[in-house]
Design a protein around this nucleic acid. Sequence first.
DNA 1: CCGTAAGTACGACGGCTGTCAAACTTTGAC
DNA 2: GTCAAAGTTTGACAGCCGTCGTACTTACGG
Lengths: 112, 112
Amino acid sequence: MDDRIPPHPDVRTVPLQRVLEALVDPVRRSIVTQLCDATADLKCGGFDIPVSNSTATHHFRILREAGLIRQYYVGTSRMNALRRDEVDEVFPGLLDAIVSADRESSGTLSRR
Amino acid sequence: MDDRIPPHPDVRTVPLQRVLEALVDPVRRSIVTQLCDATADLKCGGFDIPVSNSTATHHFRILREAGLIRQYYVGTSRMNALRRDEVDEVFPGLLDAIVSADRESSGTLSRR
DNA sequence: CCGTAAGTACGACGGCTGTCAAACTTTGAC
DNA sequence: GTCAAAGTTTGACAGCCGTCGTACTTACGG
């Protein structure tokens, strides 16, 4: 009964500030990059990130509220999809520039 | 005698992380945008930013250490130049994407 | 030589943010 | 019906970061 699919913002209403705050964290940037490189949507547990489960949940929420990812349930798994087209339309070139630069520089995720 | 011109990093050695941390702050992003729109280099006092003098100094330092600006003295004024070409070479499309998005969204600098 | 203009350096302080562990919820499988 | 799998929620806590005022430095101008 309970559609516990959290609300997704319209990307056009998301301030640049929020998008950058989302992408400045190495873990979140890694999530976006992995989504970008994946051929299909990924469940939360399917990412290679060096943080606890609850911290991961936090990061996914930030990304969702920044309009960068779309989340939906499949059984007990929460799937994550990159909202590439929508983001590209509102912030042209941004995702590409950051993800491209991220691929080169982050062999391993530098833990602060 | 004292060349109190602080050291500038080679942009190729600057991690993406540092660049994004520099650009995530609204004040610093505004500085970069103003430099981008200006026809000549600007002295520190020549920017329209809503912070105190000492805070401004701090922001300029962050930008310099991120390889985004070059600073040099002219008399008692410290001039600031955007290192556009160098940054573009290492992080293609990044400056353009962020500055473009910033121009649209930040009529006034939203103070947190 | 003295004053003023332009910034810098130095603490100090408050708030935000990333992190975790522990308890809870919900779904699917047997 | 019961159990395990997958995440979420809720505090709590530490560290960083932006901010400011004050004191200091340096250089130009009269």
